[in-house]
Simulated assay, not measured.
Amino acid sequence: MFASGLCFVGVTGIVRYLGTELPAVQSAFLRFAWGVVFLLPALIGVLRSGMPGLHLRLHLGRGVVHVAAVVCWFYAMARIPVAEVTAIGYLNPVLLTLGTVVFFGERLSLRRVLAIGVALTGALIVLRPGLREVTDGHIAQIFAAVFFAGSYLFAKRLSGIASAGQIVAMLSLVVTLALAPLAAWVWVPVSAEQIAWLAVVAACATGGHYCMSRAFAAAPIAVSQPVVFLQLIWAALLGWVAFGEAVDVFVLLGGAVIVGSVSYITWAEARQRRRVVMPEVL
């Protein structure tokens, strides 16, 4: 999980470095196009094997939502500090929890309600509306968190009927195809250096997801989740060293509040599951 955090901070740092010279849609398209290249062997196998209609509809639905998420994220990343993008992004698990209640009928316990309330308080600490300007970059990142949560809901549904390789490969393909006409509409000349950096972005993102999967396989989420907070530390340091962004104590505090609430609910529910499956002593 430590390595995963470094990979994702690398993604945000490079996109921040590329700035606003390329439209957000075009940057996102080039990043996912490189992802298709990296995943081409797996993608060929998926397409050859085919899939039922339900699978295809879910893949397409997830792709559309994910397109909105990545465009908002690329837009925000080029306009607000790296640490703020990272901190607001921590809302994803909270929104995902709400989504599972609405769409999958999961029970919203008092523990979950309190954790959600604490996490939203953390988001307000980061944004501080009324005390400073909330820019279009902040709003874009909030929408990105919402859309990413929607994408993960599709992934949760797909995880029960499709393999992990199929889910990842189809996401890259569908998002690339969906972004292509949008990117063509706003296309500007792109340099070899920009293309190369976006290839590194795709490689870092792929490495981050791989490391995260290994972490989840090696230990319970309750163990690995607190390590996610280190990603905010690296993001703040990167913004300070590479881009001269001031280290905002309120961003660190708000991010800690969000991660703390998510970590608590993860730990508490994992403990509850262990109690349920524990055999009764006779």
Rank of each mutant, 00 (worst) to 15 (best):
A180K: 02
A180T: 02
P181A: 04
P181D: 02
A183I: 05
A184D: 05
W185H: 11
W185V: 05
W185Y: 11
W187T: 12
V188M: 12
P189S: 13
P189T: 11
V190D: 01
S191C: 08
S191L: 06
Q194A: 15
Q194K: 11
I195W: 10
I195E: 07
I195F: 10
I195T: 08
A196W: 11
W197S: 09
L198D: 12
L198E: 13
L198T: 08
A199M: 11
A199T: 09
V200T: 05
V201Q: 09
A202P: 00
A202L: 03
A203W: 15
A203Q: 13
C204F: 14
A205N: 02
A205C: 01
A205Q: 03
T206R: 04
T206I: 08
G207N: 14
G207V: 14
G207C: 15
G208T: 03
H209P: 08
H209S: 06
Y210G: 01
Y210E: 03
Y210W: 06
C211Q: 03
M212P: 02
S213R: 05
S213D: 03
R214F: 03
R214Q: 12
R214A: 05
A215H: 00
A215N: 00
F216C: 00
A218R: 15
A218V: 07
A218L: 15
A219E: 05
P220W: 04
P220A: 10
P220G: 10
I221G: 14
I221T: 15
A222Y: 01
A222H: 01
A222F: 00
V223Y: 06
V223H: 01
V223W: 04
V223R: 06
S224C: 12
Q225T: 08
Q225L: 01
Q225R: 10
P226A: 06
P226D: 05
P226L: 05
V227Q: 15
V227E: 10
V227L: 15
V228N: 13
V228F: 13
V228Q: 11
V228I: 13
F229S: 07
F229Y: 15
